[in-house]
Computed example of a mutant assay.
Amino acid sequence: MTKRPIRIAVQLQPQHADYSQIRDAVLRAEDLGVDVIFNWDHFYPLYGDPDGKHFECWTMLGAWAEQTERVEIGALVTCNSYRNPDLLADMARTVDHMSGGRLILGVGAGWFEKDYDQFGYEFGTAGARIKKLGEDLPRIKNRLAAGNPAPVRDIPIMIGGSGPKKTLRIVAEHADIWHGFGDAGTIATKSAILDQHGTDVGRDTAGLVERSAGVDGDPAQQGQAMLDAGVTLLTIGVGGPDYDLSTVKEWIDWRDARAAG
Rank of each mutant, 00 (worst) to 15 (best):
G52H: 11
A63Q: 08
D18S: 06
G198E: 05
R93D: 03
I140M: 15
M1E: 00
E56F: 13
A213N: 15
I73A: 10
K249S: 12
M91Q: 06
V231F: 15
L103P: 02
A109E: 07
E30R: 06
K3D: 12
L76Q: 07
A145C: 03
R7N: 06
W254T: 07
G237M: 09
H54K: 00
A192P: 00
K114D: 14
N148H: 09
R129L: 04
L103I: 08
Q67W: 14
A25F: 00
R143Y: 04
G161A: 11
A89R: 02
T199I: 12
M91L: 13
Q118E: 13
V209R: 01
R255F: 10
K114A: 14
H16P: 01
G198L: 05
A65C: 12
K166E: 14
V34L: 08
G160R: 07
G33Y: 14
L103S: 07
G207E: 04
Q118D: 08
L234Q: 08
D136R: 04
L194I: 05
E66P: 00
I159R: 04
K141Y: 07
G100K: 01
R23M: 12
T199M: 09
L32Y: 05
L87R: 01
C57F: 13
D154Q: 11
A260G: 11
R153V: 15
T186N: 12
F43T: 02
R129D: 06
A63E: 04
N142E: 15
I157F: 06
T125D: 09
I130H: 01
A225C: 05
I193D: 00
N148L: 08
M226C: 09
I8L: 14
D154H: 06
T94V: 10
A257F: 01
E113P: 03
R255Q: 15
V77C: 11
L88D: 03
P241V: 11
T59E: 11
T205I: 10
K53S: 13
G207N: 12
V77E: 03
G180I: 00
G237C: 05
P149S: 10
D41Q: 04
D253C: 04
G163A: 07
L12N: 01
L103V: 09
A225F: 01
G202M: 09
V201A: 13
Q221E: 11
K3G: 06
P138K: 11
W58E: 08
V26C: 13
A192K: 15
G237K: 04
V26L: 14
R203K: 07
L234E: 03
V77F: 12
